[in-house]
Design a protein around this nucleic acid. Sequence first.
DNA 1: CGCAGAGTTGATCCTGCTCAAAATGCGTGG
DNA 2: CCACGCATTTTGAGCAGGATCAACTCTGCG
Lengths: 226, 226
Amino acid sequence: MRAQTVIVASSMLSSALRPANVRGFSRKRATPAPFAPDQPHQIVFCSANQEIYAQGEQSTALYQVEYGVVRLYRLLSDGRRQISAFHVAGEMFGFEADGQHHFFAEAVGDAGIRVFRQAANDGNWRQTLDAALAALVRAQEHLLVVGRQNAAERVAAFLLDMAERQGSHGCIELAMSRTDIGDYLGLTIETVSRTLSRFKASGLVRLEGARTVEVADARALRALCA
Amino acid sequence: MRAQTVIVASSMLSSALRPANVRGFSRKRATPAPFAPDQPHQIVFCSANQEIYAQGEQSTALYQVEYGVVRLYRLLSDGRRQISAFHVAGEMFGFEADGQHHFFAEAVGDAGIRVFRQAANDGNWRQTLDAALAALVRAQEHLLVVGRQNAAERVAAFLLDMAERQGSHGCIELAMSRTDIGDYLGLTIETVSRTLSRFKASGLVRLEGARTVEVADARALRALCA
DNA sequence: CGCAGAGTTGATCCTGCTCAAAATGCGTGG
DNA sequence: CCACGCATTTTGAGCAGGATCAACTCTGCG
């Protein structure tokens, strides 16, 4: 067993699947205004850790991140969590083949989400397809990282990916906690933390505060990704 | 480092990326007739381990498995391989967002492949989208297996998935080698073999020959998947 | 100032990897 | 039909990377 973030187990139906307030992270602003936009193409504001949709719910819209970061994840019955993707500004998510959500979506920090109702039925199916294919390639590439790379390689790949997607080559503002990173990379928070410390000691990165990472030696990080 | 199937490394361009004949498996029938159908919607016959397309190649068609099994995979520069998906009869593969193949596709055993040229431009975009979304969900679910489950859970999930996709509940004919299974599940062949032996000893499965698995206790296997 | 959550660091353990060798299966040819 | 040779699979022994358990530190906030 290689469990880590033990999120409370749950039984098997829509609302039951929803992770309870008893979570790894704080729920100070627990479930604020419910996520339920009335108009199409509306922008909805989410506070940290707010749920956007849950596994098992009907899929009624597509979503685009306006600002902030969103995590998509699944749970095992004993609480192990796998974050299958983070989405940043501009990226679309919420595609489903069968009208049902197979994952949970939550805002990592405060975020703005643009909601497109009636999914892909309106003319712009081409963009929908492209966005879905981009997500597919991303997921399959992540599979390579999680299935075949060691801890250092995973963290290096994560940092480079984040740096690229934030545009800001050089200094990365991580929206997510070590727990989130671990659950994304298939590692424990301790291993993530140790690996970052080792990177810092080797001069690959500089850490100013836990959430701010400056890439000092991008070449060496890239070499790590094999 | 958790390398296993060490496939010869290669440099970085299309044909160079192609795994050489020097492979883990035998290349008796090495690269027979090249995979190049002239007509649209033609069925092409592939012998075992024949390449269908390579990473870096232009993407010019969609593919559907007629019979047999196809593997999609990527390589790390040191030869570690991650199989991101197996595809069986009826399933479509070969979607790409940007006109370039990001993976290798090969027939596992002998296989028949239906080739659709001009991709998704002809009316049936809806099926294309659905097939792509199905692949996306599959990839993300596989991510959960590889990222968060232990060896026994991964093998159990693999067997149940194969049983379901082959229709034949009960007896599974594995088209792929232990090496393929290992590279799909992010394990070594030794671990796959040991796990299967343990399943056999516990009465969860019966093994008649290395490639034939009879699921004896589907309930217990399912329980393993957590 | 004190508390709570997040992050870091240390010690130890265990699962799965590595290296090695034996066993099994299978196609070929005598 | 059997014997041989090769590839695949299984099994064993030992090791190590990352998980687990347990302090301890840091930061932000009331």
